[in-house]
């Protein structure tokens, strides 16, 4: 099984044609087309495989190379004569998309991104340029590892790629979640201490109301309306200063 990656960069353009019907189906086909072409013996075989893979695809874009690798593993084994049906390949693609997307969305969007942004923000409140650098380094350490290494992992492990990811990438999840919560605590403390030293108890009391207000508003309203309301309240408060 060849580990060659003729177009790994294509996975970085996966969502260019995102739409409400086939989601990233066109992007997924665009990404795996070179692999299918390398595998097919002739134009007819390529068209048959294209017919099966040009359709619906909805997955976390960072997990997509792992899914594509698993699909190519099955396609390669099918071509080699193993009893692997087209339905099994489609089923594996669909199952891996659901499972890895659930884990990937949580890992990257709920834990890693807010964590990296919180660290960046801690430096930003002191106007330090190192904030963006640390943010990019933390996020891309995991992001690029999954994107670039994902295809190889999928190709090597096939349908069991999720096991490999659980053993490597997702193992860091609980550790990073703790770090993210700790960083948020540090950020919160620094913001309150700065408010106290510059504006005294009045600013801190306003801060407590702002934090509580935003948390409550987010239960009912979208982030945009919450931010607008918080911003209006901030402006009102400042005008009374």
């Amino acid at each position: 099984m060849s580990g060659k990656r003729p177009g790994i960069w294509r996975f970085f353009l996966l969502q260019s044609s995102r739409n409400d019907r086939t989601i990233d189906g066109l992007g997924f086909f665009y990404a795996i087309h070179p692999y299918l072409k390398a595998l097919a013996d002739d134009e007819g075989q390529l068209r048959e495989m294209a017919g099966r893979h040009a359709g619906y695809f909805n997955a976390n874009p960072i997990m997509a190379p792992s899914i594509a690798g698993a699909v190519m593993n099955l396609e390669t084994r099918r071509k080699a004569g193993e009893d692997i049906t087209a339905e099994r390949i489609e089923g594996a693609k669909s199952a891996l998309s659901s499972a890895l997307t659930a884990r990937g969305d949580y890992f990257f969007d709920v834990i890693l991104l807010p964590f990296a942004l919180t660290i960046g923000s801690i430096f930003a409140i002191y106007h330090s340029y190192i904030g963006p650098v640390i943010f990019l380094a933390i996020y891309n350490l995991y992001h690029l590892q999954s994107r670039i290494g994902g295809y190889g992992a999928g190709l090597f492990n096939g349908e069991d790629v999720w096991r490999e990811l659980a053993r490597t990438l997702f193992r860091a999840q609980s550790y990073l979640a703790g770090c993210a919560a700790f960083a948020s605590g540090v950020f919160g403390a620094l913001v309150f201490l700065r408010a106290w030293s510059f504006g005294g108890p009045r600013l801190v009391i306003w801060g407590i109301f702002a934090v509580a207000g935003v948390s409550l508003l987010r239960l009912k309203f979208s982030v945009l309306w919450t931010v607008l309301a918080a911003f209006a309240a901030t402006a009102l408060f400042l005008s009374t200063w």
Binding site: V191, A210, V211
Partner: peptide, 13 residues
């Protein structure tokens, strides 16, 4: 000094 409070409120979620 005030804007980060909005961020704390949403990250607490």
């Amino acid at each position: 000094l005030l804007i980060p409070f909005v961020g704390i409120g949403s990250i607490l979620r």
